[in-house]
Write a protein that binds this DNA or RNA. Structure first.
Lengths: 348, 348
DNA sequence: TTGAAAGCGCTAACAG
DNA sequence: CTGTTAGCGCTTTCAA
């Protein structure tokens, strides 16, 4: 393994020498961390420009213990979610002049040695932790170390009080299911669960039961299947139900991805949507409006989640505190797949 | 602005003291960078575990001038592209035990001071540079500094010889257009350009002209519109053409996103696809198979691009050299929108 | 307003 | 095989 042969970059000493001042003065001029006479400052900046000097981030971080960077921890994915989330994060970041590091946590590597861990913790002033990207004991360790963190799409594990940003899953689901029942007169509504232990999924399930109860509909566990937030799993689940002769007039998939699988399965079985069966999802991901028929779903405010999370994290870093939990109100996005007529699509 | 009050983390000295050895030995044990007697090593690791010690990345980077991290530079966006790209990158990274930093280059901030620049250059051993994320002069500066880099989806700017990974745009387009002409007997094929100066877009246009020529079809500049890699722009362009009374029997949108806009516009105008007009795109993004009708397109090998790029970059970092350009063969993905019958969908 | 100098935590010769 | 020591490039007291 070769050591990369990089050209020697100019250092702060080169700048100091060229400007005829000390390194301390250069540092002050750059960071405005102390008084510098205007003329001196000007000379420093001139030298910086002439040398095309760039401070070394590692040295800076080591000395000042601040990186002016926040880290985003994601489980090893590249889902539809990512794009929208990133958009929100960026938007917020641009305003605050922080930098962003996205660390993908490859769970496979996690066990190798403690040193294959993502380096975020030492490389950033704070962390945005997407649900599922960190094991609980890691969360404990980081939390104990005092690293500012914000949890995305899940609430703080018991024993810790890490601020979080979550979406109103339950209420959104109740609205959605109630719409199916009251507007479209559906009574046998399938629910396709997401992954086990996934907070969003369990809350959506709670919302499902609650909506049925509120509307006086008798629950039927036959109608519960496993979609696993996956198109193919959801498709299988629907085929399976139909094979077993289970009758239903609507399907609520725990996310849009699963809903797309449902649509596919129903299409293959020549079941007309929404005429015979209504299909709805959750997230309002970029998929939703492109499906056939366009999917009625609940907007999970992905972009805004990113935005708010960054705001909170920076509060935490700079002020030392932020509100414990931000709940983003979700809202219904009505399209065709529930049985409504094509409405002006306000969901994009 | 408060300094974050992080708990003091254990350092290599704490580990050394606890294990009864010197810091050099601890370093050797951790990095396997020199001989350490098994018993000693064991004692070191025991101390590490007990202290829950984590090496400080900044200090490490400063001392060793290697971060074991590669940076991905993206323009400030969150498109459909990145999910797939990231998947490929991750896949390759996991195998190589490097870490990934994704730096979003916010062009807006770029001008503030030289120090608001993305920190990638000092924080990673090499850079993956996505097309459009860096201005040419930055590319020059970085290249001069000797930082290993790989260009994604564009070739090295004149004067530099930065290795790159690109997709076979021209050939893929020729196949696609030829299919339209020979199989579906289309003769008036609209082309909706991508953004100006975008290499992928211009190459696809070249392919378009070439295919027409090869098949003896007279080009007609009336059929050229602007899709801008955007659904809404493409939709507008189609409406505009129809308003102007331009007749066509097929549309080739420079990317899938634009194709989706075409489909929408045509749907609004009640033009049956593919019966009256064939529609095709480019990329085979996650959208394509979900559109109605499912989109015939060219697979741009996004995931593999990420994979190959990482492989090349690591070659460059560790071996000091890699092949100047990797051209990934694209291939046709036939679905319904061109007029073919639904085929087994091999494009996902 | 400026400079000298002591680290930040780690790696990498160089001795032993 | 192991320890000593000199930095890596920057920030930050503390004096001047």
């Amino acid at each position: 393994m070769m050591t990369p042969k990089q050209v020697q970059q100019p250092t702060i000493m080169d700048v100091a020498a060229r400007a005829g001042v000390s390194t301390a003065t250069v540092s002050r001029a750059i960071n405005q961390s102390g008084p510098v006479r205007p003329g001196t400052s000007e000379a420093v900046w001139k030298a910086i420009r002439e040398l095309d000097y760039q401070p070394n981030v590692a040295a800076r971080g080591l000395a000042s213990r601040r990186t002016h960077t926040i880290g985003l921890l994601l489980p090893g994915i590249g889902g539809e979610f990512f794009a929208a989330l990133l958009r929100g994060i960026e938007h917020s970041l641009v305003e605050s002049r922080y930098n962003l590091l996205v660390h993908s946590t490859f769970p496979q590597n996690y066990t190798a040695t403690p040193f294959t861990r993502a380096l975020g913790e030492h490389n950033s002033d704070g962390l945005l932790v997407f649900t599922g990207s960190l094991q609980d004991h890691e969360l404990h360790r980081l939390s104990k170390s005092g690293l500012p963190m914000i949890l995305l799409y899940c609430s703080s594990p018991p024993g810790l009080k890490i601020p979080s940003v979550v979406v109103e899953n339950r209420k959104g689901t109740v609205q959605l299911i109630t719409h199916l029942i009251q507007v479209h007169n559906r009574k046998r509504i399938v629910f396709l669960r997401g992954p086990d232990n996934h907070e969003d999924s369990t809350e959506r399930e709670t919302g499902y039961w609650e909506a049925l109860a509120l509307n006086g509909i008798k629950p039927d566990t036959d109608l519960i299947g496993h979609g696993d937030f996956s198109s193919s799993e959801a498709s299988k689940a629907i085929h399976n139900m139909m094979d077993r002769g289970i009758v239903f007039d609507a399907v609520f998939a725990a996310d849009d991805e699963a809903a797309s699988g449902v649509l596919q399965a129903l299409h293959q079985r020549c079941v007309p949507v929404p005429d015979k069966v209504s299909v709805v999802g959750f997230d309002n991901s970029s998929l939703a409006s492109h499906l056939t028929p366009p999917l009625t779903t609940v907007d999970a405010r992905i972009e805004q989640t990113g935005y708010v999370a960054v705001t909170k994290l920076i509060e935490l870093i700079e002020l030392g505190t932020t509100s414990p939990v931000s709940i983003l109100p979700s809202h219904l996005v009505i399209r065709r797949s529930c049985g409504c007529e094509a409405a002006p699509d306000s969901g994009d």
